[in-house]
Simulated assay, not measured.
Amino acid sequence: MLNRDLHVAVLMGGWSSEREVSLMSGRGVAAALRERGWARVTEVDMDRNVAHVLDELRPDIVFNALHGSPGEDGTVQGMLELMQIPYTHSGVTTSAIAIDKELTKLLLVPAGVRMPRGTMVRSEALYQRDPLPRPYVLKPVNEGSSVGVAIVTADGNTGNPIGRDVEGPWQQFEELLAEPFIAGHELTVAVLGDEALCVTELKPKVGFYDFDSKYTDGLTEHICPAQIPDDIAQAMLDMAATAHRVLGCKGASRSDFRWDDRQGVEGIYLLEVNTQPGMTPLSLVPEQARQKGISYGELVERIIAEALEGRG
Score class of each variant (00 low, 15 high):
L187M: 14
T188C: 10
V191P: 00
G193F: 04
D194V: 12
D194I: 11
E195K: 15
A196E: 00
L197T: 00
C198M: 09
V199L: 07
E201M: 10
E201Q: 15
L202P: 03
P204T: 12
K205D: 05
K205M: 05
F208E: 11
Y209C: 02
Y209K: 01
D212C: 04
S213M: 13
Y215V: 04
D217I: 10
T220L: 06
T220I: 04
I232R: 00
I232Y: 01
A233M: 12
M236N: 02
L237F: 03
A240L: 01
V246Y: 04
G248A: 10
K250F: 12
D256Y: 09
D256A: 13
W259G: 01
D260T: 11
D261P: 14
D261H: 09
Q263T: 05
G264N: 08
V265Y: 02
Y269K: 10
L270Y: 02
L271S: 03
V273F: 01
N274G: 04
T275L: 07
T275Y: 05
Q276W: 01
Q276R: 13
G278L: 02
G278Y: 00
M279A: 09
P281K: 06
P281A: 09
L282A: 08
L282H: 08
L284G: 07
L284H: 07
V285T: 11
V285F: 04
Q288M: 15
G293R: 03
G293M: 03
E298P: 01
L299D: 05
L299C: 09
L299A: 05
